[in-house]
């Protein structure tokens, strides 16, 4: 990586392990009913109890559904680096992680037209934008053949 870890800041605390050579998304697993949530939270909306463990989520999964964002979102809240001139449509989908949950995420790909349900994708944690001289690190999924 071009910049040192010291100059890298996760987009939010607690979403994924960082810094790490093998970053994982962090979910929670309810000790009562076993339901897995992302992001991690202490209360369980499935069984209404408040006792859970933080767990690392699977790195690989399959696209369960997706869409392609074809227009530049409003700012705020959007903070992506594009201008109207450089904007390219991007993928968003729910990625099914076996026996855990379906996580909503940006899908990074060189060719959005090839996105499809059932596609194998893998977690990547990388620079999203620069803010106040720091690299803001976020999570994405990528087709496994592009990782």
């Amino acid at each position: 990586m071009a910049t040192s870890v010291a100059n890298q800041v996760p987009i939010a605390e607690g979403l994924f392990t960082w810094p790490s050579n093998d970053p994982r998304l962090l979910g929670s697993k309810c000790k009562n009913c076993g339901v897995v949530l992302f992001p991690a939270q202490s209360s369980c909306p499935a069984c209404c109890t408040e006792d859970s463990d933080v767990i690392e989520l699977e790195r690989r999964g399959k696209i369960w559904t997706f869409t392609i964002q074809n227009f530049l979102p409003n700012r705020p809240p959007y903070e992506g680096p594009e201008t109207p001139e450089t904007f390219k449509p991007y993928g968003v989908g729910y990625v099914e992680l076996a026996d855990q949950t379906r996580v909503e995420a940006r899908i990074q790909t060189d060719d959005v037209s090839k996105l499809h349900i059932g596609q194998d994708v893998e977690l990547v944690v990388e620079k999203y934008i620069e803010r106040d001289g720091k690299d803001i690190i976020s999570f994405f999924f990528k087709p496994v053949d592009e990782v």
Binding site: I11, A12, L15, P39, Q69, P73, P76, P77, Y78, E79, G80, Y90, V92, E104, A105, R106, Y128, I129, S138
Partner: peptide, 11 residues
Amino acid sequence: GKWYGDVGMAL
């Protein structure tokens, strides 16, 4: 989280 809007998913 605010991040959800930052990354372009709050649409």
